[in-house]
Amino acid sequence: MLYMDYCATTPPYSEVIETISECMRIFYGNPSSLHRVGLEAEDMLRKARQVTASALGVKPSEIVFTSGGTESNNTALKGVSAAYRSRGRHIITSAIEHASVYEAARQLEADGYRVTFLPVDETGAVSVRDVEQAITKDTIMVSLMAVNNETGRIQPVEEVGRMLLQYPKIVYHVDAVQALGKIRTDVKAWNADLASFSAHKFRGPKGVGFLYRREGVNLVPLLAGGGQEMGLRSGTENVPVLVGMAKAVRMAVEKQPEATARMYGLRSILTERLKHLENVLLHGSPEAAGMAPHVVHFSCPGYKPEVVIHALEERGICISTRSACASGEETPSRVLQAMGLGREEAATGLRVSFSSEHTEQDMERMADELERVLNTISPKTGGRGR
């Protein structure tokens, strides 16, 4: 099986699996308990926070452990909006954000906040100028993703962060879920006040992530309870999984420069092949530097995407339609429509995402099998051709 759906989830590093297993066996205590077993678990939790913070070049106190990207994003948007509502009730985000930002913003809109959903250009990028022009005296937050989870388009988060230095009262949040381990991820260079991460996107365990919160940024917590995570995220911490995530963070950051270069090479092979296939339209920037190295996104107008996916699966290849959260929907992609694509193209998007451990032969195989599938399936009905 050739698994090429790394944007949806990634296979954990074997070292991470071993670390979690060992930690579950030895450090099973509740880190809030005062006895020795609890204190040992608390020490492991402290070390996991230190390792995570060190990998990102931030302070341990600036790392808030969560259940993943969705909780981190919701905590950022809802926590900031509640903490700074006396300053204003205007939030700026974009039309292409992940559902956990987009829908959270819609909820805030229903609660009386004014939300500006910025447009993107035909390549899927937000304009720094549009961000600045949307700012008003009531703006309390800007939230943008570093890498779009459908198309792989890199967003100008560093340039936006630089511009926002002129507006010190605006809280800047970056959804970095698809960035860590793929592109340089530097929350300080981004001038981010908050940044969201999810472990299973960089070969860590599922159900765990973290929110970088710059020192001095206030948040109203989503969960009431025992006051864990510096009072920002109540609930007993899953110590073994957090330790495993910390290991995955360190490995992802250490491997990133070499992995990025290799993945760009693999991406080039696949995109060059797809450019010459009939009925295949590539999306995103034509400039490789504007795209994340691990994603190739394209449409096959006239073909049902689920039929193409299952036909490829029969040939031993796993890819996806769009965000895993919306992969079962038949409606056109909100992201692709924001890029100006028509309903048919926006409803037939396909996403290939891979790792640095894939090979040149894997890319060739993917292109070969896609070509065979498109020649086999009837483009009108989505069924088998003659």
Rank of each mutant, 00 (worst) to 15 (best):
V187N: 02
V187K: 00
V187M: 09
A189C: 09
A189E: 12
A189G: 10
W190C: 04
N191H: 14
N191A: 13
A192K: 00
A192M: 03
D193M: 07
D193W: 04
L194K: 07
A195G: 06
A195D: 05
S196V: 02
S196L: 06
F197M: 04
F197I: 03
F197A: 03
S198T: 13
A199C: 11
A199W: 01
A199F: 11
A199T: 03
H200S: 09
H200F: 13
H200C: 08
H200D: 15
K201V: 09
K201Q: 14
F202V: 06
F202R: 05
R203Q: 14
R203C: 12
R203L: 08
G204L: 05
G204N: 04
G204S: 07
P205I: 11
P205A: 13
P205S: 12
G207W: 05
G207A: 11
V208N: 00
G209T: 09
G209N: 06
G209Q: 04
G209E: 05
F210Q: 04
L211A: 10
L211P: 08
L211E: 08
L211H: 08
Y212W: 08
Y212A: 12
R214C: 13
R214G: 14
R214Q: 15
E215T: 13
E215A: 15
G216T: 13
G216H: 12
G216P: 06
G216L: 11
V217G: 11
V217Q: 05
V217Y: 04
N218F: 12
N218E: 14
N218V: 13
L219H: 10
V220I: 14
V220T: 12
P221Y: 04
P221G: 10
P221N: 09
P221V: 05
L222N: 00
L222T: 00
L223M: 11
L223I: 14
A224Y: 02
G225T: 03
G226W: 10
G226S: 15
Q228P: 00
Q228N: 10
Q228F: 06
Q228E: 14
E229T: 01
E229S: 05
E229M: 01
E229I: 05
E229C: 04
E229N: 08
M230Y: 14
G231F: 09
G231Q: 07
G231N: 11
L232A: 09
L232D: 03
L232Y: 07
L232W: 04
L232N: 06
L232Q: 03
L232S: 01
R233A: 10
R233L: 11
R233Q: 07
R233F: 05
